[in-house]
């Protein structure tokens, strides 16, 4: 899932207009941004299951996607954001960062550890909606529809006639990208 994460950020922008969209977009994917160098260095790994493709991976992101790790990353991002956008902005950013873990909890197979490095070998978490792609695609579709509608309405409202084209363009581009993100993810376009 990544379209769903971006969609959630778009929806949050509609409700927290003082926080820039770029910061919300980066925040919603921050756990995966941390995952990339860890994956490239071999610290965190992925293995294909059931032929791979959309949702067909067991993701061993034992640090970036552990519950404690996600909370720590959210806290650090929130404290940093507070310096720029105040207390409310900091809380918004921290919440958006952690929302990634909550959405992943729904779709991941049981591969999310509670503590970094799966310390103590506690039970791994994940509701596994990816096992039934129709369910996870349905969840992402709801998210991108809600994200697009909320964002489009907020970007249009309060915009002068001379800026309407710009506002419609911003909302339209975001909607198209959300749809493209979901379609390419489902089709496994790399």
């Amino acid at each position: 899932m990544f379209a769903g994460h971006f969609a959630l950020a778009a929806a949050v922008k509609a409700k927290a207009p003082k926080v820039p969209l770029w910061a919300l977009m980066l925040s919603t994917q921050l756990l995966d941004v941390v995952f990339v160098p860890l994956y490239l260095s071999g610290v965190e790994t992925m293995e294909s299951v059931e032929g791979g493709g959309y949702g067909g991976n067991l993701i061993h992101a034992d640090y970036s996607h552990s519950l404690a790790g996600a909370l720590a990353i959210a806290l650090i991002a929130g404290l940093l954001a507070r310096r720029f956008w105040g207390m409310r902005g900091g809380i918004v950013i921290a919440s958006v960062v952690f929302s990634h873990w909550l959405l992943d909890l729904m779709v991941h197979r049981a591969d999310l550890p509670i503590l970094p490095g799966n310390l103590g070998h506690l039970p791994l978490l994940g509701l596994g909606w990816w096992k039934v792609p129709a369910v996870s695609i349905g969840l992402e579709s709801v998210l991108i529809t809600a994200g697009f509608v909320l964002y489009f309405r907020s970007v249009i409202s309060g915009t002068a006639r001379k800026s309407k084209v710009l506002a419609v363009t911003a909302g339209g581009v975001l909607g198209i990208l959300l749809l493209l993100a979901l379609v390419t993810d489902v089709l496994g376009v790399a």
């Binding site: 990544f2 770029w22 977009m25 980066l26 800026s163 911003a170 975001l174 493209l180 390419t184 790399a190």
Partner: peptide, 30 residues
């Protein structure tokens, strides 16, 4: 690769357009 491409498109592309809209609203375009 797909992830990084969309990350750039959403943060830089949509972020830029959104900042332009915010700026237009602030300039009294209401």
């Amino acid at each position: 690769m797909n992830f990084l491409l969309f990350l750039i498109l959403f943060t830089a592309g949509c972020g830029f357009l959104d900042a332009k809209v915010d700026s237009a609203k602030r300039k009294g375009g209401r």
